Amino acid sequence: MRINLDSPYDDGEVFEREDGGWYFSYHQENPNPSLRDMQFTNKALMACIADRVPVGVLREREVRKGNSPEYDVLGLAVPVSWQAGFFFFEGVRTDGAWHRGDTMSEVLLSTAQAQDDSTERDESPPSDDYDARLRIARQIVARRGQRAFRAALMQAYGGRCAISGTNAEAALEAAHLLPYRGKESNVLQNGLLLRADIHTLFDLRLLAIEPASRCVRVSQQLAKTSYRELEGVRLAEPAAQNQRPAIAVLETIWRPFLEAERQT
């Protein structure tokens, strides 16, 4: 497969690991995710995911108008998952191994970090202490979630974290179970009131809620941390049935959590 610089698709940057591994995202052929299996390349990559078959990866050096493109050979990479129109790859190291974990989350984090670093370099420094504090306040407000959605969750959950029981309002955030896609995402069945650190771990798929038992499951990656104490904790939910997380939403999150755990 080839990573072209002038591709009509939004192929991601290739990120390197300290152990010699590498990873990246690659947009499927056809911009509509629901039409994935209409293209032979997509069907072949899905088969490679199922069978863990690596593919050769070439990356274009530079866009050369009117000239034949030149490529660097990156090596072999294993397509490990597909979601929302993107394939996620783990590069094979020189020892023949590749990283096993939640590659999609790592791609998203690395991409966001790269963009954040770029914005930070381009952004002018605060003009004074007030401006610096204002920027921090904006970040806190953005992280807490939209005011009305957070207020509704605060009322539904009695001002307590649904997992830890923390009642410090300043530390509680409105967590979307499925990613925010506009105002229709701000419904109580798609939300949880969570302590800030637990919200972060939830977004990183290091915590999940088992749909059948409604209990917390903790990733193996947190097994040697204090967060292991959350394993098996039953989710504290509102009394009203229509305010609780929808079973279909929990199942949508649970499946990729299990897949990431199998790869760890």
Rank of each mutant, 00 (worst) to 15 (best):
G56R: 15
A170H: 03
P179N: 06
E18L: 07
E123K: 12
H27C: 08
N30D: 07
V216A: 01
R228Q: 05
A236T: 15
N190G: 04
A212P: 01
I247C: 00
A260M: 00
Q28D: 00
R244V: 08
L235C: 09
S226P: 06
F87D: 05
R135Y: 04
T41W: 13
T200V: 10
T103K: 11
V73N: 12
L76K: 15
S105P: 00
E120N: 04
I140P: 02
E62D: 03
Y130R: 10
T200R: 11
R52H: 03
N4T: 03
E62T: 13
R262P: 01
A156R: 06
Q28N: 07
V57E: 04
S81R: 15
A223Q: 09
P211S: 09
V249Q: 01
E231F: 08
A97L: 15
A132H: 12
L108M: 11
E29Q: 15
F257K: 10
I140T: 13
F88D: 00
K183I: 14
E70T: 09
L235G: 07
R2L: 05
T166S: 02
M104Y: 13
E120C: 04
E18H: 06
W22E: 08
M46Y: 10
L172E: 04
R217Y: 01
R144M: 13
F24T: 10
D102L: 05
R2G: 02
P125D: 00
T225G: 00
T166Y: 02
D131G: 06
G56Y: 15
R93Y: 06
A170N: 02
V249H: 08
G12H: 02
C48F: 05
E184H: 14
S219R: 03
P245N: 06
A196Q: 03
A168N: 02
L109K: 05
